[in-house]
């Protein structure tokens, strides 16, 4: 297969969570989350209680994919920031490198200016985590197969999923 899937290890996960938590606090946002461009949720922080983050992740990726398609038609490379303004809540979406999307939901306890500033810093920090991760995966692929938990999967394991 051409593209390897995304693999996240515990220490990267911790770094991402920490950065998101910091962003969410300093930006005075409601929720901040990170989504893989394919639509999978990587991490979320803040008042996530009544939010369906799985659905939001998939729609965010769809949104980015659609605007990316629009950009191409216009001869733009991509729109790296999207902003949706609502009556109470606003959504700020930005690309993190080639792989991820950062989404910040905020209301009038914060402001677009503050969000922009904090997001810019976090995007840089998060991009570094992903660069590191990419390198690490390359290295482990170059060594040997690694010790993935899926090497020993049996037909029965899969059958059991469907009860």
């Amino acid at each position: 297969m051409l593209n390897p899937g995304l693999v996240l290890f515990e220490e990267d996960s911790r770094l991402i969570d920490k950065e998101l938590k910091k962003l969410n606090e300093l930006a005075r946002a409601k929720v901040s989350f990170l989504v893989d461009k394919d639509g999978q949720l990587i991490s979320s922080m803040g008042e996530t209680g009544d939010i369906d983050t799985t659905s939001l992740a998939s729609l965010t990726a769809g949104n980015i994919a659609a605007t990316g398609g629009m950009a191409k038609l216009l001869g733009e490379k991509e729109f790296s920031i999207l902003f949706h303004e609502g009556e109470k809540d606003n959504i700020h979406i930005s690309l993190v490198g080639q792989r991820a999307i950062l989404v910040v939901v905020f209301d009038d306890r914060s402001s677009l200016g503050l969000i922009r500033l904090r997001v810019k810093r976090s995007v840089a920090a998060l991009a570094a985590v992903f660069d590191n991760l990419a390198k690490k995966i390359e290295k482990s692929n170059a060594q040997e197969g690694g010790q993935s938990p899926f090497q020993e999967i049996t037909e029965e394991d899969i059958e059991s999923l469907f009860g």
Binding site: L6, L8, E10, D38
Partner: peptide
């Protein structure tokens, strides 16, 4: 692509 998260012990696939 599949997403393997060792921290959350989750794996996601897209069909």
């Amino acid at each position: 692509m599949s997403f393997i998260n060792y921290s959350a012990r989750e794996i996601s696939c897209k069909i």
